[in-house]
Design a protein around this nucleic acid. Sequence first.
RNA 1: GCCGCAGUGGUGGAAUGGUAGACACGAAGGACUUAAAAUCCUUUGAACAGAAAUGUUCGUGCGGGUUCAAGUCCCGCCUGCGGUACCA
Length: 918
Amino acid sequence: MDYNFREIERKWQSYWKDNSTYKVDIDKSKPKCYVLDMFPYPSGAGLHVGHPLGYIASDIYSRYKRLCGFNVLHPMGYDSYGLPAEQYAIQTGQHPAVTTTKNINRYREQLDKIGFCYDWSREVRTCDPTYYKWTQWAFVQMFNSYYDNDCDKAKPISELIAKFAKEGSASVHAACSEELNFSAAEWAAMDEKKQQSVLMNYRIAYLADTKVNFCPKLGCVLANDEISEGLSIRGGYPVEQRVMRQWSLRVSAYAQRLLDGLDRLDWTDSLKETQRNWIGRSEGTEMRFKIKDKDIDFEIFTTRADTIFGVTFMVLAPESAYVDMVTTPEQRAAVDEYLAAVKRRTERERLADRRVTGVFSGAYAINPLTGKEIPVWISDYVLSGYGTGAIMAVPAHDSRDYAFAKHFNLPIIPVIEGCDVSEQSFDAKDGIMTNSGFLNGMTVKEAIAATKVYVKEHNLGRVKVNYRLRDAIFSRQRYWGEPFPVYYKDGIPHVLDEKSLPLELPEIENFLPTASGEPPLGHAKNWCTKEGYPFELNTMPGFAGSSAYFLRYMDPHNDNALVSREANDYWQNVDLYLGGTEHATGHLIYSRFWNKFLYDLGLICQDEPFKKLINQGMIQGRSNFVYRIKDTNTFVSLNLKDQYEVTPIHVDVNIVSNDVLDIEAFKNWMPDFKNAEFILEDGKYICGWAVEKMSKSMFNVVNPDVIVEKYGADTLRLYEMFLGPLEASKPWDTNGIDGVHRFLKKFWAMFYDKDQLNVSDAPLTAEELKSVHKLIKKVTADVESFSFNTSVAAFMICLNELSALKCNKKAALETLCILLAPFAPHISEELYHELGHNTTICDAQWPKYDEQYLKESNCKYAISFNGKVKNTMELPIDMSKEDVEKTVVSSETVTKILAGKPIKKVIVVPGKIVNIVF
RNA sequence: GCCGCAGUGGUGGAAUGGUAGACACGAAGGACUUAAAAUCCUUUGAACAGAAAUGUUCGUGCGGGUUCAAGUCCCGCCUGCGGUACCA
């Protein structure tokens, strides 16, 4: 019987399903291992061949760990709330609930064909009320918490209220939007509304007027990580700045912990670096500048306190509150005009057009160190959201200040010895200070430290750490998301109590977003509490549901808690997390924040959610082209195309095989090509190719179902791994798949003859044992280090060796089955079963290799002369270094090659090389 | 600009400082076959020499260096990819 992968795969997939083979429960007798894939958005396009890459890798690891005796949690679910799902629904004119269910079913169907070992009984969907109850619950916890900077953790807001009542704000060091100062008496005097608005300043989930990125086309605000270069990542629509009353999460309170936590994680350096950049810690000095003749001082932030003697002007961000305070009557008109012009510009225009603009405020500030008067300008190159929204400008040593100074003809004073600032600024942080009073002669580093001390001693400011990381804007003016468990009473937001959760998303007819930003939930009927208090109309963003799903998998059906203490104590956190790099600054920041918050509340036992993280590469498309001769319906093969004037046309890669076009299929592909004619080479039409993004419009989408149908899931799995290193991006190229398929056919044919297994009970010979143990060693090491491509190659080598030895022995097959099971579970399961086992291969044990079989009796030395290898020689393995040297040097070949030349040195590396230097 | 990663045959890609190109694809030749498919075998980095076995030289983006020995380590470039950016 030939290798009938269709029947084998169908058989085992239904067996695993019927017997719940991969269902896991807490089992304290075994060590746990939690292997997780980033769960997918069920998009309308279904899975293409790139999606399963990471899933296959994690599946291999899960199966391997299971065979090693671990109790492996390997779940899967769907991130089904949020923009992508809703956009798809809008585009197809259907209700998102309908399309989401449909898409999920399609995903599941495709996933099932690949033979994953997911425990589907633990599936979660973020749009399911039993799931989002816990998303809402977490929000309530955040609303009821504040961040205490003294203990560096989140605490109940009730403790803060008690402190306010006792001693006012004096002893409170909490993360907040704005520093407030009030006494216990003042607190007591505040009415309910005032107190609530003060508390809002401290809550971890808070409501505030915030400058947001609003995308009119999506009808919705977006978080910073959802935007790139002024355009929305989803859809690529323009984004503008607006001030809106929005819910936010105080992620910034966790900036330092998010940064510190990275050191303890087994993630790639590049990903950690991306997060470090995103968090953007910068240590500097906050300094107070007085305005001349006015009782105003304002603070600036700088990392280059050393350059204070080079300050020649100040710049305020246009949105800064100081603008209004410092502007002189004479300059009022000019300033107003400038502010209006800035406001008109969209974020995108501002980014695209970086011309220097600005206006003089009329005011002068006093340099606190030199006492000199310096003009105060207003310009949009200073950002209101970073630092204090005001800077001291040192044109000699900052390229932006330099451009501004040149444009407006402001003085430039260099303060570092020997630098030339006639053409450009000198930004480097090294050199010796000059023109700088008491700093003269110091290095930049010393000067920064000295200035900090000076500023502190003279009470001119303080040392300050700034972070680029902003609070996460948490409201979306969209329908398809978690409703906030919030109602308004006299305009004051209140959260629902736990018993009333979940607050279910109401059915509405018109769920379309609006360009003005009115939330669609405004259309919902009776969207209020029993008492008639209106509910919040915004919904939560996409990352809400994905921020704690890894915890829910531990205990997915628990009605009383997000995760029980018992389940969390056992499963702890994710041992291996697999997904794309695109989540580096979004999901992977938010979920770490969310997890740390729950940890602070003592609800979970680990403060980092993902111990090890691997980013699988993207699979790009490999497009094929045909070449149409201009103004004809004739197509010319690739290598002849230069003789004609041709237009390349994308052709569906599914009708091309090894770059050879299926001409009949092409004629039937589109009506236009029905009567196409061809100029062939060697009787074939060869197509051109290029690597592009995998997309429908390039006709280069390859669907995993098609591969499974043609070659089987085992071949697909092996091939995706064989394609190259897991972390590398690579084009999908079907050209090599035959080789992997051939391997499985050979494997089958070697042990299966006619209608039955043809294996002997004979023990393995030394050579066979060596081959098998070499494989065990290699595959074990490779799987541990995620080098799946080289382990596939190792299987092929071993099979070739055994085949050359005509080894169709039971002992060899059994070991091969177990080793191959993680990679190609169906064929392994079938052959394992045929060997007489009546349990699944999951009950087998990963084999251990034995060094004694790998030992060689002889050892091959490479003999090199001056580093160049000229010969090899086999010598007994137990020979001493000295004896090897003697034997080699006295050997005939060496004597011949040396021909009497004197030997300077002989280097012997045991088992490897003998180098003779002459 | 800054940060990170990479550059090896016709192709995808292997190589704890120790015989570069494993394994696979493709290609060429051969076997089986009426033929094709499938399968199997041989060759396959380049150049030169040789009837042949084989030998010689050159070869991991470029230029230097360390070393008996460098794809691998160090310094200086070039190119490509990814991230990020008026962040003071």
